[in-house]
């Protein structure tokens, strides 16, 4: 299926769940956070779409005023087509349904995004930090992150702000 056909099939089924966003690239489609689990289930199980491989989950912080985002790169081994689903989260309380039980790799990818951005994937059976230590404070990849000063007596070095890239 071409990108256009995939998008049409999705909007036929979930008319109200798809958000029109001019800023997105052609291969991206933005979906309402509260409907994500239903859309994801459909994308995986629909015989015409059959997205059986979750390539990647990427968390993105769009800046201080913008929302946090989760990007899901989906791919179908059967039809060899792909699409990227985008979910935006409220900065104060980032939350979305977990798709860990649909694609098993979602388990670790969601843990990683949770670890780095603090996005909570509700329904995840084992949501805890994966790369950072369990008692680390803060969400390192957020733009407004400030590292804690010391960790178990070890001083955490500050990243120096360098100016003048030109």
């Amino acid at each position: 299926m071409t990108l256009e056909q995939i998008k049409n099939r999705l909007s036929d089924q979930f008319k109200s769940s798809i958000i029109k966003n001019e800023n997105l690239a052609e291969h991206q489609v933005e979906i309402k956070g509260e409907d994500w689990f239903d859309v994801a289930t459909f994308m995986k199980n629909d015989p015409k779409l059959s997205f059986d491989q979750l390539e990647c989950i990427t968390g993105i912080d769009t800046g201080e005023d913008g929302p946090l985002q989760t990007h899901y790169n989906l791919h179908s081994m059967e039809y060899r087509h792909k699409i990227e689903a985008v979910i935006s989260h409220d900065r104060k309380d980032p939350k979305v349904a977990s798709i860990e039980q649909l694609w098993r790799i979602g388990d670790w990818f969601e843990r990683e995004t949770y670890d780095m951005f603090g996005i909570e994937y509700t329904g995840h059976r084992d949501l805890r930090r994966i790369l950072c230590p369990d008692d680390w404070e803060g969400w390192p990849l957020r733009k407004d992150y400030e590292a804690q000063e010391s960790f178990h007596g070890i001083v955490v070095p500050k990243i120096k702000e360098e100016e003048g890239w030109e």
Binding site: E55, T58, I60, D61, H71, N73, I105, W108, L141, W165
Partner: peptide, 28 residues
Amino acid sequence: DLGYYIVSDGTPSPTRVKMRSPAFTALS
């Protein structure tokens, strides 16, 4: 499959670089 997700905002340094690591998924 080694994937890179790169987000640019037009400045000389990237806004976000994500590496999709194949060994990470294999270990899971």
